[in-house]
């Protein structure tokens, strides 16, 4: 079973992109922000695989450099939100403290009343623009959503026989949380998280696209797409390649999630 999973094209693709983004300096002679006016607006060629933008910067280099923010930033933010969401959701569900649970439900209900991206954009704007604000907003909103989900699962679980018997034996709250509940909900949380990954990278790109995220000249996929928006009819490659990579990453994670959750 494990052998098949590793050969999965989605995983291979994502790992490839990850490697290229970290080690891009090894693969490319160009700097991601080096300006070279003489090479501006060149179409894709052997010299510049993905072409150049109006400053003569190599799109191939920028795309994979930008992957660091788009992929790893999202991954990190996602991971933090998962941990926080698990923690809060678990606690809210397990501890019958009425007040904590009540507030949590109300808070999550409020966030739930918005489409994900609207909530994130609003929070990003509220925290001040920039990369950190964007990922922070993403983490916060997602933590709330995961927390809500976890809480539901935990509440369903805690009435089950094996939990009740564990309590009867005298097991403490944290023991129950870690030994019994967590292993049971982890699989579904993981699947949700993988799906969320594509949502994260898309949302971050969307926010950078609007101008609220990354600042120039740092590349991030959404920002590069925005850079090339006026050149759609002429130098189409400026927006095309970052967008292509973004799409392929999303497709890969979608396929991956489907495999894990038929």
């Amino acid at each position: 079973m494990k052998k098949n999973r590793l050969k999965n094209p989605s995983i291979i693709f994502l790992i490839l992109v990850g490697i290229l983004s970290i080690a891009i300096n090894l693969f490319s002679p160009y700097d991601s922000i080096q300006i070279n006016y003489n090479a501006s607006l060149q179409p894709p060629s052997l010299k510049h695989f993905f072409g150049t933008d109006s400053f003569g910067r190599d799109i191939f280099t920028r795309t994979f450099y930008g992957a660091r923010i788009s992929l790893f930033g999202s991954a990190f933010s996602l991971f933090s939100s998962m941990v926080i969401g698990l923690a809060f959701g678990g606690m809210a569900g397990l501890f019958r403290g009425k007040l904590l649970d009540y507030f949590f439900s109300l808070f999550s209900l409020t966030v739930w009343s918005f489409p994900f991206i609207v909530a994130v954009i609003a929070l990003t704007a509220a925290f001040g623009r920039g990369v950190f604000a964007t990922f922070f907003a993403l983490a916060v909103v997602n933590a709330v959503l995961i927390g809500r989900f976890v809480r539901g699962e935990v509440i369903a679980l805690r009435e089950r026989d094996f939990i009740i018997s564990a309590r009867a034996i005298g097991a403490g709250d944290s023991h129950i949380l870690f030994q019994h509940i967590l292993p049971n909900i982890l699989p579904s949380v993981l699947v949700t998280t993988i799906l969320s990954f594509s949502i994260f990278i898309t949302t971050e790109a969307g926010i950078s696209f609007l101008g609220l995220g990354v600042q120039p000249p740092t590349p991030s996929w959404g920002f590069m797409i925005r850079d090339g928006i006026h050149y759609i009819g002429t130098a189409w490659w400026i927006s095309f390649f970052p967008g292509l990579l973004l799409t392929l990453c999303v497709v890969s994670t979608s396929f991956l999630a489907e495999k894990l959750n038929p």
């Binding site: 973004l246 799409t247 999303v250 497709v251 979608s254």
Partner: peptide, 12 residues
């Protein structure tokens, strides 16, 4: 595939 393309990119 099509469902995965980010909306703004698709629009472009």
């Amino acid at each position: 595939g099509i469902g995965s393309i980010p909306v703004f990119y698709l629009g472009l």
